[in-house]
Design a protein around this nucleic acid. Structure first.
Lengths: 340, 340
DNA sequence: GGTGCGTGCTAAATGGGTTTAGCATGACTT
DNA sequence: AAGTCATGCTAAACCCATTTAGCACGCACC
């Protein structure tokens, strides 16, 4: 409503001092010799005028804009994004920063343009996020701008934040074992080709490795492994149905994600099998779906929010190199029971 | 990788001209009298140095930062957000703008702070978005900064973008009527209290009004109306189950949203009723769920992406006052059939 | 009384651009 | 020869802050 923003010069004038003095006082410069009286007058004037520094002008001089660039392939606008962005926004807010969100669709030309756009605005750092953890192509970024890869990795920018998939995978299996399952355990969704795909392996292969090592540690083996190329409910449904028709004695299913699990529920229900009475199910992601299913799906969550948070913390702390692995919390619902 | 960004002064020096000339040429000023030769030299120099203007510095002089503030209560990080933000980002990108995304959790203190934060960065305009269309509390914003309300309305800032709920509601009913339904139509979820709540009525009451008017236009009446306070699957399930147990002869259900519909599917399936063989279902939102259900849920979509897009277009065009109603497209799947 | 020093403050440069006002130069009038 | 005008370009102010360099004053000391 006030027609004009107060500038530092306005504050100084009202306080009867120079802009220099006002600047120093408002920024709490340590070794200045300005009087207590000057401090009081400047603070009062700033308060009276509702003065807020112009960040752009300040940034021009200081090279700090209190602004972070968050560039993602498609994550900004997907269910997976929610947590990533939310965590980032929160951590940024806590540090008095603000976030510029851009989306590239994974297109290198748009990626290049996005980088330029945030650099044009003198961001203090850039976060690259992807929907699927992967090795990410990243155009050149001028040295001096910190970069962290979120849910992605890149050899040129070695600071990255990833879910601790290996441990998460192991936990899913342990959940079953703790309930007494030792036989009839099925792995649903794992796919060698997906696993070999460098652009997805960052996450998938670790999850699978964790699963397998937990099985092995307990001396167990899967009764069946059903491969699925596209991790959607439809495929989970078909795959489970086919498995059941083949007569696989499934007592527990480890699904590679919740959408596959959703499909499995549908097929199981059609076959007259109950969860968890006849078959226990454990899964990954903690998709929104997981809570809607009946019974609720027990799943090892992707810790998106914590990841987003960590990414900006690392960025602002001056990115230590290396991978930050964020633990995947298990969300216990009702889909796991003791074997009949 | 280049160690320093080229400045306008660098370009001017390389071209052998003044910064003034370089600025005018690069900005394509119309009535300047600079020679063709000067143009060529400046353009070549800019190209050679990879010059990109510093947006912050320019903004200082011009008051245009090519940046938009997108402030939401909680929308930034929910499934509802996806489209809203995506649409906004796309329209912004098309116009050479960039978006600062902030989240307030609906807390007035954080809202005030968020506004200050974007204003500190001299944004060209502000979009306020909410998850549920509603009358929104908005702290003072200095005159001169355009504001548009997205999925929300506010009497002080009259430019708003909303889904065309009335027409959408009517369409849902017409979908049923077209298939020949005239009897046994149930309205599931409508709730008088919700409807009276000013903070939600912007959307809900219009949707209901559209539904009712379409029924009336065809001389039809609901066989039952089931009220639901919390629009979640669990409640949809309970409510449908209770209705069935009461012996309501339901042949078609209009669900107030997809999550309620999800619950209805579960209850119907338990009761041995098939969709759409025994009961047709139509719903609203086009939640991600809708595609996962078996059979796929026919639903009247919330046009989030189009809304986000429209919001920035209005903002950049210098916001015409009034409501922009965005059509709600019907997404046809397989949940509606002819009555048996 | 000159020198040195601490105290309290400010002028001016700086960052990177835009914009206003106006300076040379040459051609053309009258 | 003086005045007018178009042409092609630049100096300098400005936007809003930070920062460096340094001024003016008073006091202590020899």
């Amino acid at each position: 409503m006030s027609s004009k923003r107060a500038t530092l010069a306005d504050v100084a004038r009202l306080a009867g001092l120079s802009p220099t003095a006002a600047s120093m006082i408002l920024n709490g410069r340590p070794d200045t010799r300005l009087s207590q009286d000057a401090h009081d007058r400047v603070n009062a004037a700033a308060e009276a005028l509702g003065y807020r520094p112009n960040v752009a002008a300040r940034g021009l001089r200081t090279d700090k804009t209190l602004t972070i660039g968050f560039i993602s392939d498609v994550v900004a606008t997907t269910r997976f994004a929610s947590g990533l962005i939310k965590g980032a926004l929160e951590a940024a807010e806590a540090a008095g920063h603000v976030v510029l969100v851009l989306e590239t669709g994974g297109d290198p030309a748009r990626e290049t343009e996005a980088i330029a756009a945030v650099l044009d605005r003198q961001v203090d750092g850039i976060i690259f996020a992807t929907m699927r953890a992967r090795e990410l192509f990243v155009p050149d970024i001028p040295a001096g701008t910190p970069v962290v890869m979120l849910n992605a990795s890149n050899s040129r920018y070695p600071t990255s934040v990833l879910p601790d998939e290996r441990e998460g995978g192991a936990q899913a299996v342990r959940l079953l074992i703790e309930q007494g399952h030792r036989e009839g355990i099925v792995l649903l969704g794992q796919n060698d080709e997906v696993e070999r795909d460098v652009f997805r392996s960052a996450t998938v292969s670790r999850r699978v490795a964790g699963i397998r090592s937990a099985m092995k540690d307990s001396g167990l083996e899967f009764v069946a492994e059903e491969s699925i190329w596209l991790w959607e409910p439809e495929e989970g449904y078909k795959s489970t149905k086919a498995m059941l028709e083949r007569g696989v004695p499934a007592r527990a299913i480890v699904c590679m994600n919740d959408r596959i699990a959703f499909g499995a529920y549908q097929a199981l229900s059609e076959a007259g099998l109950s969860v968890p009475g006849d078959v226990s199910i454990v899964s990954f992601d903690n998709d929104e779906l997981a809570a809607y299913l009946r019974p609720g799906l027990t799943t090892v969550a992707l810790p998106h929010e914590a990841m987003g948070k960590r990414a900006v913390e690392l960025l602002l702390a001056g990115a230590t190199e290396g991978e930050s692995l964020i633990p995947m919390p298990v969300v216990t619902r009702a889909s796991i029971g003791a074997p009949a």
